[in-house]
Simulated assay, not measured.
Amino acid sequence: MDLRRLTILHSNDIHGDFFAKENHDNLVGGISMLSGYIHKVREKEENPVLYVISGDMLQGSIIDQEYKGISTILVMNMLEPDVVTLGNHELDYGLAHLMFLERCANFPIVNANLYIKPTETNLFKPYHILEIDGIRILFIGIITEEVIAKSKSEPLIGSFICIEEAAREVEYICNSYKDIDIDLTVLLTHIGFDQDLLLAQLLPKEIGVDLIIGGHSHTILEQPAQQNDILIAQVGSGTDQIGRFDLQINMDTNSIHDFSWQTIPINDQHCPHDPVMDELLNNYQAEIDGKYNTVICRLPRELEHGSRFRETELGNLFADILNYQLGVDIVMLASGSIRKTTLP
């Protein structure tokens, strides 16, 4: 039996979580220590190591917003992901700007369900095949319907509008390469954990999908779900943790012989800082502070925004500000646009 080992590290919904946070006596998260961990694993492991991202690199940080995602893509370039799929927030700056960001990326971005209607041409590569240490891996990207809804404002852009059609597209791609010796097939999705489960149910076993590495629902798992012999994983959001698959691949049957998976905490107990990344991020932060780090008022007490699903003091404050500034009768504020839980 020809068994090969492969490690896949994965993130999703990073959302501009660039800087570490203090948690008791530890530093937790941040791109610098995430980069340090990824590079440490790549250097120490004897078996090949891949790093993938399942969408939503953008938004969540003023550094991202100030540079319309260009800063984030440059940061991601330093993380050196092997393949990435789109999330809904990748379209926040518009489709044309997203195409520009793709040109800035030093890594492949895959998506199988956005295309140009008249010619049925994919906007992005629908899949990417990597060969490493003799292991041939097929990555396919699938995106959430939220992006589909946004793209409908572009009359020449279409998409597969339901999970059933996405499943058929995955089947079509897999069947197109059935004569090639694909050893591992991985779907990078940004459709949410429940939809990942449904997608796995809809996929015929004979097309050989092995893994779904997902995003969008910010789901934390103790162990990967298994549906229709497909392993499904997701690793919350931000940079406080990273997912890790250690796989044994049966090269004779093109399937996973054995695996382990864990959520690795990103903290200063075992993750070195990346000094080059620190320098880049500190330069961005200095530019942002020079422009925005000004006290405009002080609150008599801390205001909270502890949940997106109820009225909060911080939400009311922002709604009142918009109401006063714009002179409108009703303000409807997207709760998720408030990224912090408190304002001191």
Rank of each mutant, 00 (worst) to 15 (best):
I182M: 07
E154G: 04
P48T: 05
P344E: 05
G134D: 06
E66D: 14
L203W: 04
V147G: 14
N283F: 04
G192Y: 01
A334F: 12
L34R: 14
E45V: 02
R244L: 13
E46R: 02
A334K: 07
N323L: 12
T342A: 09
A96L: 12
L203V: 03
H218A: 01
I249F: 00
F18A: 03
D320M: 10
N254T: 11
F107Y: 03
K21G: 05
T7G: 02
S159M: 02
K152I: 03
D229V: 04
A149M: 07
E165W: 06
Y37V: 04
I63K: 01
L86E: 04
E164N: 09
K150M: 13
R42F: 00
Y67F: 12
M76Q: 08
G94F: 11
Y93I: 08
L280M: 14
G16D: 06
I182Q: 06
S260G: 11
L114W: 11
S260A: 13
S217A: 08
C297A: 15
L343S: 04
G327Y: 06
Y93S: 05
K68H: 13
D179S: 15
S159P: 15
C174G: 06
K21I: 08
I264G: 07
Y67C: 09
E304H: 03
S255A: 15
L280W: 01
G192K: 11
L184V: 15
E287V: 07
R301S: 01
N88Q: 08
Q248T: 10
R308K: 12
L9N: 02
H10D: 04
H10N: 11
E120A: 03
E145L: 14
Y93Q: 09
D246N: 08
R298N: 10
C174E: 10
H270M: 06
A319C: 02
L58P: 15
S32Y: 06
K291D: 03
H270R: 06
F139V: 05
S11M: 03
Q325H: 09
F139C: 05
L247D: 05
P272F: 02
I129S: 10
M251Y: 05
V276T: 04
